[in-house]
Every structure is written in C-alpha cells, then in structure tokens.
C-alpha cells in the first residue's frame, strides 16, 4: 500500500505521517483534535492529493441526522414527477429517488477514497455513536427499499473535532487518536515558506515573532491561528511600506486581520510593556 509522506502545500511532521499510515493500515478512522488552525482539515486534503484518492467531505452540522449523511430519499422530486409525468425517471421505483449522502458516496465509490468528517463535535452524541456503527460495519440499510449498501472499498476516514464537547467513550474506542499541537515557530516558518515561496526573510522572521508574542497575550478570547497569520502576511506583502518586514520592529499594522473580536483587538493594541506586567 502506498504510504503517505506529505504533499506540496502541506508541511508534515514525521510523527503525524506515521500516525496516518498506521490508521490506514489498521483501517480505523483517525480522530484529530487540536486548536483551529493547526491543519486538521488540510491533512485530509493532503492525503487525498498525495495518494491520488478522491476526497469526500462531510461537513457536520449541529442539526444533522445520520440518515442525511448516508442517503436521501428525494420525496419532493418523486411527488413532482408523479404529478407532471414528464420525467425520464420511473416514478414507481423508489430506487430512482435515492441519492447517496457523503458517507454513502464514499462507500459506493469504486476506488478507495478519503472521507473527511469535519467537526464531528458539532453533532449530538447519538449521531456520533450511530455513525461509528455504520463505519464499523461498513454498511447501512436503505429503509425505503430495504436494501443494504455495502462498502466496496474501505475509505480512509479522517475525523476532526474542535473539542467543544467531549466525545463519547464508545466513539473514542473505535478511533485512533491524535492531538495536533500548535506549530512551533520553526515549523511556522516552513509553513509560511510553503505558502509564500518568495517571502522576504526579514518579513517572515519578524512576522512570526510578532505573531507568537500576540498569541502569548493573556486573556485573549480567540487567539490568532495559522490562517490569520497567513492572511496577515498577505496584507503586509501588499503594503509597500511593510513588504520588506523591517518596519515591523516599530509598528504593527493591520491588527484587525489577526484579532477579530473587539475586546481582543483592544488588548493587543495596548503598548507591550503594560501587557507584560502580568504575564507569567
């Protein structure tokens, strides 16, 4: 089996590569936790890209029912078809109106695919447990036609969680687990370099230094993450005054790109010596 070793836009540490490969070999879902902006979702994209698999994304929503992720029985179209009678579909066959949901698509795909179940923690725990049953059995029933959909190939399953809620024990029992820590400055430099191959060295160094200083401010509700940093650097590069990065020593512009809550913005805009007074 092809092993996963990173892709062009995604900087991977070896530990994570091992974890992905182990989960793929064991054919178990991999549950990824970590702060926003640590690249949980990007990982699935990178796996799909590097192994040449199709990526199927299931964005979990709080009101979602499991059935929606498996299949949908499109009753409305069927009703319309039966009233107007101008469609090519056979109205008497329910099967014509069954559409596969994201999990269903991953099951019926002929080649092995990557199934990303994004932000599982948004759904309630019944959803999570039921879904794991399905993923465990690799099959589900279509109630309307009493058919069983069996997975052709086991997809590579990546599940992400922002840890708003704790996941249930049975759920955790069936997954492999990894927590992606926030990248260190060194790693961040490589991430920046991957996004901006021609970035000025001074700009990268100064921007990262400021960024980690901002992250260490106490009492900030929403810390800036990788995404904010990349956007911020994009803004800095667009400004001729700052694109070389030297001016960052004296002045820090575009704070609003990094801090999106007004209270955080105010905190960050305070002069630094005031802040450091209470820092541990």
């Amino acid at each position: 089996m092809a092993a996963f070793a990173g892709s062009t836009r995604y900087i991977l540490d070896q530990e994570l590569a091992k974890i992905v490969n182990i989960s793929m070999a064991l054919e178990m879902p991999l549950l990824l936790k970590g702060e926003p902006g640590t690249g949980k979702t990007m990982l699935a994209h990178a796996i799909a890209e590097s192994l040449g698999m199709k990526l199927i994304v299931l964005n979990v929503k709080s009101s979602m029912k499991l059935v929606e992720a498996l299949y949908q029985y499109d009753t409305l179209t069927r009703l319309n078809d039966s009233r107007f009678g101008d469609s090519v579909r056979d109205v008497s066959s329910i099967r014509e109106y069954i559409r596969m949901g994201k999990i269903g698509q991953a099951f019926v795909a002929e080649k092995r695919s990557v199934l990303l179940i994004d932000e599982i923690d948004k759904a309630d725990s019944e959803f999570q447990d039921d879904m794991l049953d399905v993923l465990d059995q690799m099959q589900f029933d279509i109630m309307e036609t009493d058919e069983i959909v069996q997975a052709v190939t086991r997809p590579v399953i990546i599940i992400t969680s922002n840890a708003k809620k704790d996941l249930s024990d049975p759920f955790l029992g069936r997954c492999n687990f990894h927590h992606i820590a926030f990248p260190e400055p060194d790693m961040m430099r490589r991430i920046l370099a991957a996004h901006f191959p021609d970035i000025a060295q001074t700009l990268a160094v100064n921007a990262i230094r400021c960024f980690y200083e901002f992250r260490s401010i106490e009492g900030v509700e929403k810390k800036p993450a990788t995404r904010e940093l990349i956007n911020w650097v994009r803004a800095l590069r667009a400004d001729p005054d700052f694109s070389s990065g030297e001016l960052l020593e004296r002045e820090i512009p575009y704070l609003g790109v990094l801090f999106k809550k007004s209270s955080d913005y105010r905190l960050a805009a305070q002069p630094p010596q005031k802040r450091s007074l209470f820092r541990n």
């Binding site: 540490d13 070896q14 820590a181 926030f182 990248p183 260190e184 060194d186």
Partner: peptide, 8 residues
Amino acid sequence: LRIGGISR
C-alpha cells in the same frame, strides 16, 4: 512545553 516540531 515543547510541541509541534519538525523532523525529530
């Protein structure tokens, strides 16, 4: 605390 890290 040391986390993240590149190739170790």
